[in-house]
Design a protein around this nucleic acid. Structure first.
Length: 232
RNA sequence: AACCGGGGCCUG
């Protein structure tokens, strides 16, 4: 079963879903990891409906889904922009008694954000026990997608304590600052960038240049541009 | 021992 599951994963990730399904359906004794793998590769290949269908079959087979199962299903909801299924899986999670961790909660935040319900995303986010940089970034991304730049800037001042910002977070916030013309928060981020290991990151640097340009600070944009070494 | 979460530009 372990080897067959690895095969399903390999064929699925390589884009041959038919071969993955062929092995999957002929395999006796499938366990929860086997089902998760098939669901995940279906979702990652853009076959969300297949993933939803597999989940129903999984339930019929009395295999109990776990956190990984739902993370994959939620990403399928994101691809399909299917809020109805997303809410359905959310209630499945609650009913199943699974204790959410940061990974699952972040998948929920992302799903609600991408499926058009930043309000629900925020409710999940606020209820999180262990909020980390990734969840925080996902929450801001939800607001950014819906043009709620003000909410992003409010969140910037409520960053989780004791965490280091990463390059993904810097770019997200700087883009929001650019869209909002929020020079104050932009300069704050610039200071944090200079203190971080990303001070010479080309992607972060691009976001800084863009932010200063959108804020009308062309000289600052130019000096940020000139600060980045090995510009290509 | 096999499966799982966030961003800009480009490929679009």
């Amino acid at each position: 079963v372990v080897v067959a599951t690895a095969l399903v994963n390999m064929y699925g990730k390589c884009g041959d879903l038919d071969e993955a399904l062929h092995i999957f359906y002929r395999l006796p004794g499938k366990n929860v990891v086997t089902w998760n793998t098939m669901i995940e590769v279906s979702a990652s290949q853009g076959q969300g409906e297949e993933a939803f269908h597999l989940f129903k079959e999984m339930c019929v087979a009395h295999i109990m889904p776990n956190k990984s199962t739902f993370v994959s299903l939620l990403s399928a909801c994101v691809n399909e922009e299917n809020l109805v299924e997303g809410k359905n899986f959310h209630s499945c999670i609650i009913r199943s008694g699974i204790i959410c961790d940061a990974v699952l909660d972040t998948a929920l935040v992302t799903m609600y954000g991408k499926c058009g319900s930043p309000r629900d995303a925020r409710a999940v986010y606020d209820a999180m026990n262990a909020c980390d940089v990734v969840a925080w970034t996902a929450m801001m991304a939800a607001y950014i997608q819906h043009g709620q730049g003000n909410e992003v800037l409010l969140l910037v001042h409520k960053m989780p304590t004791g965490v280091l910002l990463d390059n993904v977070t810097f770019v997200s916030i700087l883009d929001a600052c650019a869209a909002e013309g929020a020079l104050e928060e932009g300069r704050l981020m610039h200071a944090l960038v200079l203190d971080s290991e990303f001070f010479s990151d080309v992607v972060v640097g691009t976001a800084l240049v863009n932010m200063y340009n959108k804020c009308g600070k062309l000289e600052d944009a130019r000096s940020a541009f000139d600060t980045i070494p090995k510009w290509d």
